[in-house]
């Protein structure tokens, strides 16, 4: 463990019966960064998080969190981390204030300090006016904000956010991103999982992608996007199959992928130079182009490229990401 690392995972393995949920993964999270942990549903993300937050026993591997060995001193770790769980964990019959109060007492924060922190945090997440209201009467966004405030109550060194903006409207998501950035700026390391690639792209200092219990690739968002080549050319023509086969052998094109309504070609050179050459090639072969588009790879592209499939989201979430459905 280096001086900068705050979470260190070495050769972590975890089985549920015969199922190997985590298959020997290693990674580190540096102090002060926002580390995003991405992967399709069932990739092993939750298992890793549950081990890191001490809800699952370590079966095999070496894990340190906030400088403490997970097997030797789980309670020291518990005191150093804050958690916002994937599914809502709020007692619907307690008020906003009581939910915070309950949490503060669980962590044995002294009374006066507890009151000050609750006041301060409710102000930050703009729930001061709702403090006497039972959580069941709050909107989904308010509940999530309350959970984030609660996770911060113990002034944790690391805040675990397991899909913090799932099911929230764009305005609320942007607001929550602001809180996350603010908290991170004040020195809290963030461990984030999300199914929203734009979220990971926006917030992360570094990203690790996990699938089938293994880390597939790790790096900054820019590094990951650069691994895909420079640019992506999208073409829709009167003969997409022939276009694809022509492009596959074309110099300057790195790889080609058939889409439902067109062809995606990843360039190995600057796309703005490559595009005119592609136009020439197609017109030489008398292929008529209906539409064309040139874009930089997004985190969605990175994710799909490395996990070989689209993210397996809950169906209700799909509406936010129409472009994610394309490559299926």
């Amino acid at each position: 463990m280096t001086e900068r690392s705050i979470i260190s995972v070495k050769e972590l393995e975890h089985r549920f019966g015969d199922v190997r949920a985590v298959d020997g993964i290693s990674f580190t999270v540096n102090k002060g960064e926002v580390f995003s942990f991405l992967g399709p549903n069932g990739a092993g993300k939750s298992t890793v998080i549950n081990i890191l937050i001490t809800l699952l026993h370590l079966q095999k591997g070496m894990v340190t969190v906030a400088g403490h060995d997970i097997q030797k001193s789980p309670s020291l770790i518990r005191n150093s981390i804050g958690i916002v769980f994937q599914n809502e964990v709020l007692d619907r019959d307690l008020t906003v204030w009581e939910s915070m109060e309950f949490h503060g007492r669980l962590y044995a924060i002294p009374r006066d300090e507890r009151r000050d922190r609750i006041e301060e945090l409710l102000k930050i997440v703009e729930l001061t006016e709702k403090q006497g209201i039972r959580t069941k009467y709050l909107s989904g966004g308010m509940r999530r904000r309350l959970e984030i405030a609660r996770g911060l109550m113990t002034r944790p060194e690391i805040l675990f956010l397991d899909e913090p903006t799932i099911g929230l409207d764009p305005q609320t998501r942007i607001r929550i991103w602001d809180y996350i950035r603010r908290v991170n700026k004040e020195g809290t390391t963030i461990f984030l999982t999300t199914h929203y690639m734009d979220e990971a792209d926006q917030l992360s200092s570094r990203i690790g992608i996990i699938d089938h219990g293994k880390i597939i690739i790790e790096g900054t968002p820019t590094e990951l996007k650069n691994t895909l080549g420079s640019d992506i050319i999208y073409l829709d023509t009167d003969d997409n199959d022939r276009t694809a086969s022509l492009l596959t052998n074309f110099q300057g094109i790195h790889s080609v992928r058939m889409m439902k309504d067109g062809v995606n070609a990843v360039t190995s050179i600057d796309g703005t130079r490559c595009l005119p050459q592609v136009f020439d090639l197609l017109s030489l072969n008398s292929i008529k182009i209906f539409g064309a588009n040139l874009k930089k790879p997004s985190m969605d592209d990175v994710f799909i490229h490395y996990t070989g499939k689209e993210i397996r989201e809950e169906s209700t979430e799909k509406a936010h990401h129409p472009h994610m459905r394309r490559g299926r």
Partner: peptide
């Protein structure tokens, strides 16, 4: 809801 308690010290 018990996760909050089990994950606490």
């Amino acid at each position: 809801l018990m996760r909050e308690m089990l994950a606490s010290p």
